[in-house]
Nucleic acid binder design. Sequence first.
DNA 1: TGACTGTTGTGACAAAAGTCACAACTTTCT
DNA 2: AGAAAGTTGTGACTTTTGTCACAACAGTCA
Lengths: 204, 204
Amino acid sequence: MLETFIKGIRITEEELKEELHKNATITTHKKGDFIIKNNQYIKVLKIVLEGKVRVYQENEDREILIYYLNTMETCTLSLSACFEDCKSTVNAIAEEDCTIILNIPVRFVRDWNFKYKSWNRFTINIFRESYLYLIDQYSNLAFQPLKDRLFDYLVSKAHGGVVKKSHQELAKELGTTREVISRLLKTLEKNKKIHLGQKQIEIV
Amino acid sequence: MLETFIKGIRITEEELKEELHKNATITTHKKGDFIIKNNQYIKVLKIVLEGKVRVYQENEDREILIYYLNTMETCTLSLSACFEDCKSTVNAIAEEDCTIILNIPVRFVRDWNFKYKSWNRFTINIFRESYLYLIDQYSNLAFQPLKDRLFDYLVSKAHGGVVKKSHQELAKELGTTREVISRLLKTLEKNKKIHLGQKQIEIV
DNA sequence: TGACTGTTGTGACAAAAGTCACAACTTTCT
DNA sequence: AGAAAGTTGTGACTTTTGTCACAACAGTCA
């Protein structure tokens, strides 16, 4: 439930909005394009105007979701990188065609933090909420068995009681493998918790 | 390695230091005292002047470490709470007798963020580093087998090649149970990676 | 239509982690 | 010294998760 509140952009000051538009470059990306790769230098703030980006960590053949960026959401890690040069430890990939604001010069992001109250608020809120959300995820990962994490995840991602994702996608989001997800989903179906279709899961 | 750099307080402006001292209350706590409990409202910023505090999440009979606060370190979660009223989702317990600055009024923490550049820097840095550190921990938890996390943890906590902790303590820090730790340590000893003593582990 | 690609199901097995029970040893405190 | 509390070792077992192999099915596109 935390998740639905985080990463929303909330800029109110007109002057700042103008600065944003004046300084930003807008780019478009096709589904499947990498926005950032592990070990690459992050040099600009990224705000997703439209589309969907998956930010994740990878490890050999597995992956785990850090967060999704949906329409009008800001990448916490790129914001973070504005304050200190650093390499990315994550990958980000366009899950849908998307348009992204980037190339806001780093020094602006820093200066605004002291110049505009609303930007300051915004920055702090992004960090605050991302941090709390991650702690929550961390402790779930530590204590909840996968079958519970899976079910909770399905519930959180459902639109009208339906999740349109393949088992492989779920595996990549939850940090496990496809076979494990398939098996757990079958069990959930036997227990009348869900109903399985092709690339579609219905929550009962 | 990230860990050794985070949570350090770095206040340079004299005026701000004075404000800190003027407004703060200093309290002392005995080893074993709870500094904050799960579900309690966090109302003040906490900075550990001396001693050691363990901040962790609990789940029935298990626990997992979020971070330790050592001398001159600031609690990220209490800083975060200054910007938005919220309940704690963690516990914090004094692992050694300690003295703590608290009762800095919340509005000061917020105002300073716009008034003092160094405080602004400080706030951002705390969030930034804590967030990056947690992502690192998160992905380790997801991908590294416990035996590796344990060994890495021992290495990171060793002073002069020695860790003075009981198996129970390690279990609480790594989010598992004592028996599991005992067994893994025995294996590490057999593999000549460590040498086991009473409440003491020597890294070879 | 038929080949290709992606998706799902599943059995068999292995490895990792958790649980329970109990013994033995150390340290602390009186 | 002796009791109590904390610490460590360990066997036996269960549950959870990961791996491999292979089959069947669905959707897309030439």
